[in-house]
Design a protein around this nucleic acid. Structure first.
Lengths: 338, 338
DNA sequence: CTGAAAGCGCTAACAG
DNA sequence: CTGTTAGCGCTTTCAG
């Protein structure tokens, strides 16, 4: 219980008023350099840390940023937390995590936490970032928020996203560059916006390179391993089959790999397989999966940054947004034919 | 900004003093049932929520539980958070997540957060739960903590764990029950306590069933996919090979699967493969992996419970601990020979 | 069983 | 550039 040091002790030791200490703490202007130094020394000497409850009770900041999530993948959630905390720590903010139960009334879960804990901002991950009821509550409570990769109504709020179309385009181009012309595609869950964007990238790349998009080369999937497995069976269990398959996410790509194994199709000699997301599973198959990496940590850090700099509070103008670069991760599951 | 309702409004509406409202809020005794009801109605009518900063500034509780982690797997971290929050919400507590950078001075990172944010308790996950410097800081600051699956010095603090020995024993017994007598084993990272416990379970089961533990059937691994892959090559790429392999974790088991695929060994007809942990990857291979599921959410909930009930503050006696049950998850990667 | 008074440790005005 | 005075919304004494 060594934390009995308060702002008063610091003020006394440095011979100034508590208000001046407060100014130094908050990096406010109008403090003589000399005084500032003296206060900082006292802070260090006493190992003083301002009490966050007192600060938020008295002031307008809570030094707390919330991360709301509702069932996305663990790897995604963890990366969001790591990215957000990295930026938050610079300003002395902490992260409150609030898993939401999407089965229940999500808005009803959100409202109480906004009342008790006055967070300075909230980061919303998919799919809760597209839950209109949640956005409504947030706005009614006046809590700034940033959405990560929102599907719908992007102009409604500040958000951070990645260029799915271009990423899918480049992955397709990568396959084409390897010599493939007959490339199968497995679509993602039709209710996820990313599905359409990724498909669009694939189609554009095929067309621009003069390759037909055959109807029997495009299968519907649902982002799950099983749906990828089944789609791959339809695509591959026949004489006339594509030489490469691009699945809209890694889980489905792993399903493709499983089918390839079963059918004794050598990857990548006989079949190239590409995924999307760079989930942990991508490195846990043999051969390792070529995929697209989203800069999730950087996206979360950008979201935190928007919140901390107050950039979300725009008057009239369109809410700020950031578009980050993806990365093509070429591993062993794609290669030239033969 | 609808949250201007304070305890005073509630007191006025219910015709009592704020102290009585406070009593009702905190479920304190000595309030007439009638009065209590009236206050609760006022709370509901005004949609009042006590301000957490004010509460923690005035009182001794912060309504905040910390979760410290330092590089365990995303799936593990997420489960811990879900389990802990489930218990915390019942009491109006929130979760603060603090990823620690194990490369740096972990203790130095912990001390400031304990000062600014006076958490009521902290849950430590492996491997940070075995960092003595962190435990020292926690104790110096008087912050109660519970460790999840600690390796060392278990009696030092409250902790929650699972019976690794028995789980490994039962998995081995499962294989033996299927008719296997020649079972390979891949050990985990030698510096993780679980590695030894799991090996012990395997050895005990083999011996008790009258099967020899051949030296050339036990390989050292490091919990990574690659180490499992390499160990499996030594175990399987030869005429005289075991009919089953039990890897100390799923990542290594997936490495075994990859080697089996490569060597064209049919799983499970020619080779049974078992893992440990039930990570997401276990369901993302074909055939799906037989493994052991740790009740991570339940363990985290138990840890939160110890913290919330104040069970960690024991005088003199041994710190409390809870041992939870594991679950054998039998999927398709294990089966009878032939 | 209930209430009045006194802060918790800080920031927000406003004076100087 | 610096200090003074008020609270923020609660819990904690301590009286009734």
């Amino acid at each position: 219980m060594s934390s009995k040091v308060t702002i008063h002790e610091v003020a006394r030791l440095s011979g100034v008023s508590i208000k001046t200490v407060s100014r130094v703490l908050n990096r406010e202007p109008n403090v003589k350099t000399d005084t500032r130094t003296r206060v900082q020394e006292a802070v260090a000497a006493l190992n003083y840390r301002p009490n966050i409850s007192a600060r938020s009770l008295a002031g307008s900041k809570a030094y707390l940023i919330g991360v709301f999530f509702d069932n996305p993948s663990p790897a995604y959630v963890t990366d969001v937390q790591l990215g957000a905390i990295a930026r938050c720590r610079e300003e002395g903010y902490h992260l409150i995590v609030e898993p939401l139960d999407s089965e229940g009334d999500v808005a009803a879960q959100v409202e109480p936490m906004l009342h008790t804990l006055r967070m300075d901002g909230v980061i919303l991950t998919p799919p809760v970032c597209d839950n209109v009821a949640v956005l409504d509550v947030l706005e009614a409570e006046g809590v700034p928020y940033v959405r990560l990769s929102p599907d719908q109504d992007q102009d409604r709020s500040a958000h951070v996203r990645m260029d799915d179309v271009r990423a899918a385009y480049e992955m397709t181009a990568h396959l084409i560059g390897l010599g493939h012309t007959d490339i199968g595609f497995i679509k993602g869950h039709p209710e996820h916006g990313a599905s359409h964007l990724r498909y669009e990238g694939y189609v554009t790349a095929m067309k621009e390179h003069g390759h037909a998009v055959r109807e029997d080369r495009v299968e519907q999937g649902w982002f799950s391993f099983r749906s990828g497995f089944e789609a791959a069976e339809r695509l591959l269990d026949r004489i006339d089959r594509p030489t490469a398959v691009f699945a809209s996410n890694d889980d489905m790509a792993l399903g493709v790999m499983a089918v390839a194994n079963r059918l004794r199709l050598e990857v990548p000699q006989t079949l190239s397989v590409a995924g999307f997301d760079d989930t942990p599973g991508a490195k846990v198959v043999w051969p390792q999966l070529t995929t697209v990496r989203q800069p999730i940590q950087a996206m979360a850090a950008a979201a935190a940054d928007l919140l901390l700099t107050g950039a979300t509070r725009t008057e009239g103008e369109a809410p700020p947004s950031r578009l980050l670069d993806f990365e093509l991760v070429v591993r062993e599951s794609t290669g030239p034919i033969g």
